[in-house]
């Protein structure tokens, strides 16, 4: 939707635009919606001319139809599959997460949400060699990424892979949106927001920053990012209320009912015991059978290994 201007039609001269402006016809949408006879009267033109201008506006704003088979070819060409590097998880996700999707992982504190995000980050940067953007609301866990990379592959070029990962600290919702609109975002194949809930918790129920409408904007920005730049967007979310202990049902994710319809794929993360975790597909709009589950282990290295490795990267001065 644009402001109406002379460029739309030679009949719309400056003085006529002023007249329209005085009657609150400002944008092309206002123009198309306005009564034909009234506009004709207002600017002294035939009704048929007005209809012609309206048709021109509609034609200019129309998106061209695409054939489904061409679209399919295009998707095949542009899609990247982001993998976690854990066989069980990738199998559960039918090979990985195709680009263009908005994925959410949620769970209680310490349930492995961030571990999953870090696992995807490490694998994408190391094995698939794609750049990754990690937007964090708390701290950057670079050491843990290094750790996971060791579990994925021995003796790889870790330094180069670490340079593919860009961390950014975001402190409020507007900083997040600023970041999402940065032209540099198109470089990344995986964008992680850890965590979205933390950004909204301090403003929940706040009338100045209407949290719902902000969430709305963030949701559409995230979808745009995923589809336009063909990347996977992963958001990390909390749970609002856990199920009663002992029951099999999964808890409800935080951020409310509106948000629950936004992600294409939703995973529930749970800590079982020691290094064993479980991921459950709670929602998947592309798969007929929801609810596959898998339990697996994240790779944890011994402390001594970690210390030695870090020394070799960054010799103490």
């Amino acid at each position: 939707m644009n402001l109406i201007s002379e460029s739309i039609s030679p009949l719309l001269t400056l003085d006529k635009l002023e007249l329209l402006k005085a009657h609150k016809v400002l944008t092309t949408l206002d123009f198309v919606q306005y009564n034909n006879d009234k506009i004709a009267n207002l600017i002294g033109q035939n009704v048929s001319e007005i209809i012609k201008i309206k048709d021109q506006i509609l034609a200019a704003n129309n998106s061209k139809p695409l054939r489904a088979d061409k679209l399919y070819e295009m998707i095949l060409k542009r899609t990247t599959i982001i993998k976690s590097g854990i066989d069980m998880v990738d199998k559960m996700l039918d090979g990985g997460i195709p680009s263009g999707r908005l994925v959410e992982v949620f769970g209680e504190s310490g349930s492995g949400k961030t571990q999953f995000a870090l696992q995807l980050t490490a694998n994408t940067a190391l094995k698939q060699q794609h750049p990754v953007c990690y937007l964090t609301t708390s701290d950057a866990k670079a050491e843990r990424i290094m750790d996971i990379m060791h579990g994925l592959q021995k003796d790889a070029d870790y330094l180069k892979s670490l340079e593919r990962i860009h961390f950014c600290y975001v402190n409020d919702v507007y900083q997040l949106m600023e970041m999402l609109w940065t032209p540099g975002m198109r470089e990344y194949k995986l964008v992680i927001i850890d965590s979205l809930a933390t950004l909204f918790l301090p403003i929940r129920g706040d009338s100045f920053n209407d949290a719902i409408s902000l969430l709305n904007k963030v949701a559409s920005d995230l979808k745009r990012l995923a589809v336009v730049h063909q990347c996977v967007v992963l958001t990390v979310n909390h749970v609002s209320k856990g199920p009663a202990e002992g029951t099999a049902s999964t808890p409800t994710p935080f951020l409310g009912r509106y948000w629950s319809s936004v992600p294409n794929l939703r995973l529930h993360s749970k800590h079982l015991s020691k290094d064993e975790f479980q991921l459950t597909v709670v929602k998947n709009i592309y798969s007929p059978d929801p609810g596959p589950k898998c339990s697996f282990r994240y790779f944890f290295r011994s402390r001594v290994d970690m210390k030695n490795e870090c020394k070799s990267i960054c010799p103490h001065t």
Partner: peptide, 13 residues
């Protein structure tokens, strides 16, 4: 882009 700076994982490590 000037609003927020990014750092690579290597710098942070």
């Amino acid at each position: 882009g000037l609003f927020l700076e990014t750092k690579t994982a290597l710098e942070i490590l």
